[in-house]
Simulated assay, not measured.
Amino acid sequence: MGPTKSMQDITITLATKPKASLGASVFYPTSSPNIENSLSDVLVVFLNGLVLSRRAWSPAIHHLLSNFSDNDQHPPTILTYDRYGQGDSDPDPSDEPSSIPYGHDANEIVSDLHQLLTQFTISSPHLVNLESTRLVFVCNSIGCPLARIYARTYADQTQIAAYLFLDSMMANTDFVSIFPDPDDPGFDPGSLPSGISLQELRYARSQFCKFFHPTVPNAEHFDRRKLAEMLPFPDAPLLPLTAVPGGDRSGKKAPLLAVVGHDWNEFAEQCEKGTMAVTKQVINTFMNPAWASYNDGLLRLVRLPGDPRAVKIAVGCGHFIQKDDPEFVAREIKHLLDNLQAPR
């Protein structure tokens, strides 16, 4: 197929918000795939977390495109973008100055995403429109709950064929309450494992409150305060069924879903040595088990009889898996795309 092409930077202005622009990057396939192994109707969409912009996906996408090229295969269309107030994008014009530091919420974000995908698919050379496009969502952190809200909101207008959740944010917690409150009247100091002090527990709660509590502002002015009400359970609502390619929407099947969690030891190490400075023992005793349980719940968003799936662990990776091991992310995406072409 020749040298691997790279992503192209573009700017997109939504018809619904003409006074602001979104920074995006796109890969357009140069030649039509063969009919037998076609991904020509697939759009892979990357959904960022709060911290890393769309640029953080570039190494993983490079590995993905190289994989296709090395195997003489045709990749699908790929889209990354920065939400309003993030990366190369303008601030959200719907935010009122009086609402700062809080502005738009998750519902507004998924509405913008739907408008973006509607416009993008119509203008793309290999896609017809959004309704006839098979979407693949690749998400990290808060991008995962956003994908779930989008799927629920636009179930009748889209076909989301596959999801890759990379260390999803735990949408149903304030993060602080994961740790026991040593100042609660009912707290039993004897319940703490040996080696964890009350002072360490208080410090962990204060640090997670400072950095991760839903009331903490962010550069996007993304108001996360009601996210736990919107997604109170990791395993519900179920991800919508998707139409069978080539058929009508009456023939539907479960979407593909892969859930990836961080490496406990690496995450704990990063928490201890980074800005958080919370000890590994505290993280491994409270935070990591809670996160693992949440990830197990995410797997149940797709119900299949005799389902052998399990949460995959990105060995050596902390929360930002696409940054710590882009080759791993590329392999996971390729695996999903290969399965989209295989009979199910």
Rank of each mutant, 00 (worst) to 15 (best):
M1N: 03
M1P: 04
K5Y: 10
M7G: 03
M7H: 03
M7C: 03
Q8L: 12
Q8I: 13
D9R: 15
I10L: 12
T13Q: 14
L14I: 11
K17N: 13
K19S: 15
L22M: 13
G23I: 02
G23M: 03
A24F: 05
S25W: 01
V26P: 05
Y28E: 13
T30V: 08
S32Y: 15
N34S: 13
S38H: 06
D41R: 15
V42S: 11
V44D: 05
L47W: 09
L50I: 15
L50K: 06
V51L: 10
V51Y: 08
V51E: 07
R54G: 11
A56C: 13
S58F: 11
N67D: 14
F68N: 03
S69D: 06
N71V: 00
N71S: 13
T77W: 01
D92I: 03
P93M: 10
S94V: 09
S99H: 12
G103V: 11
I109M: 14
I109W: 09
Q115Y: 05
Q115M: 02
L117R: 10
S124W: 00
H126L: 12
V128P: 00
L130G: 10
T133P: 06
R134Y: 13
V136S: 02
F137P: 02
V138A: 11
V138F: 07
L146N: 06
A147F: 06
A151E: 04
T153D: 11
Y154Q: 13
T158S: 15
I160V: 14
I160M: 01
L164K: 01
F165M: 12
D167M: 02
D167T: 01
S168M: 04
S168L: 02
N172V: 00
N172F: 00
N172M: 01
D174G: 07
F175M: 11
F175A: 01
V176W: 01
I178E: 01
D183N: 14
D188M: 05
D188P: 09
P189F: 04
S191H: 03
G195T: 13
G195N: 13
Q199D: 14
E200H: 01
E200M: 05
R202P: 03
R202A: 06
S206F: 07
Q207G: 07
F212M: 13
V216N: 09
P217N: 00
F222T: 07
A228S: 15
A228G: 07
D235N: 14
A236W: 04
P237C: 10
L238Q: 13
L239D: 08
P240G: 07
L241W: 08
T242Y: 00
A243T: 15
D248K: 08
S250L: 14
K253Q: 15
K253E: 15
D263E: 05
D263Q: 04
W264N: 00
N265R: 11
N265K: 12
E266Q: 11
E269S: 14
C271W: 12
Q281N: 09
V282M: 06
V282W: 09
V282Q: 04
T285H: 00
F286T: 00
A290V: 02
A292L: 03
S293R: 10
L299C: 12
L299Q: 08
V302P: 08
L304P: 08
G306L: 12
A310I: 07
V311N: 01
V315E: 12
G316L: 05
G316I: 06
G318A: 14
H319M: 08
H319L: 09
F320Q: 11
I321W: 08
D325V: 08
F328W: 15
R331C: 09
E332V: 06
I333D: 02
L336T: 01
L337K: 02
L340W: 01
L340H: 02
R344W: 07
